[in-house]
Design a protein around this nucleic acid. Structure first.
Lengths: 130, 130
DNA sequence: AATATATACATAATTTTCTTAGGTATAAAA
DNA sequence: TTTTATACCTAAGAAAATTATGTATATATT
């Protein structure tokens, strides 16, 4: 009962800010997660969402519906190891890169760099005369 | 009959090169089309696929299944005007930006630049200590 | 002459990857 | 006491592709 009322407040009152270009990030979530784990050794899900929000100054907000399935897939694919911790009375699942995950991170980052270069080339006005 | 045999050759014999990072382009097709039309005044579908292949040195190959629905949607949304031309015995559909399309192109290019900047910031090693 | 490739349009089924909406529970702040 | 923040999760649906088709003409290759 209480939980349901809380849900109503959470989803009815809070206005959703439309970021518009969020859809451009489609396909890059795995790479972002892996990159953060390469920098921070181990992180838990909620921490990742906050870190991304902070690093992008609110431009990218990773939703839980995207994050958790992504983490589970990376784990299932052997790129991440998970370690459950209890902090106070709450649960946390810390993820870290496996050896294979470290290699795949390098690959995905290289692909991302290539993509960004290509995209810059396509849309940057400086290159419009080529 | 002849057409079916040709199709079999086309799709069975020709090996598909896996580009891997093609999925990163998901969400950016409209912007790419609009940008090209801003540079080239009018273009037809096939021409767009070839131009993109050329500009990206083969890194991005726009498939017909993505291109034509995208063009139809841009037209339906009032961003593009279409003009049918007959060249020899073949059909061509030339697309060009409407006034509204020109404005939207500017918006989408700005969003893209913002996205690219953010993404660079997230994945570029130079910023990894922030 | 026959076959393959290139040009040129198109749609339908499926897949991938999200968003949106929902669920549970504890802790801290207003 | 109510809201917000922390912390996990999944399911239904939407968006935007890929893959697999279809049709037809024009050119190149064998």
């Amino acid at each position: 009962m209480t939980a349901v009322i809380a849900r109503i407040n959470k989803y009815t009152i809070k206005p959703q800010k439309n970021m518009g270009n969020q859809k451009l990030f489609k396909g890059s979530l795995q790479t972002i997660i892996l990159k953060l784990l390469a920098q921070n050794d181990k992180m838990y899900g909620y921490e990742i969402t906050q870190k991304v929000k902070e690093l992008t100054k609110g431009e990218l907000k990773i939703t839980e519906g995207a994050l958790y399935p992504a983490l589970h897939k990376l784990e299932a694919d052997g790129l991440l190891d998970v370690e459950v911790a209890k902090v106070g009375n709450r649960l946390r699942k810390y993820y870290k890169l496996t050896e294979h995950g470290t290699k795949e991170t390098a690959n995905k980052l290289a692909e991302m760099q290539e993509f960004l270069k290509t995209m810059q080339h396509l849309v940057n006005p400086k290159f419009s005369l080529e």
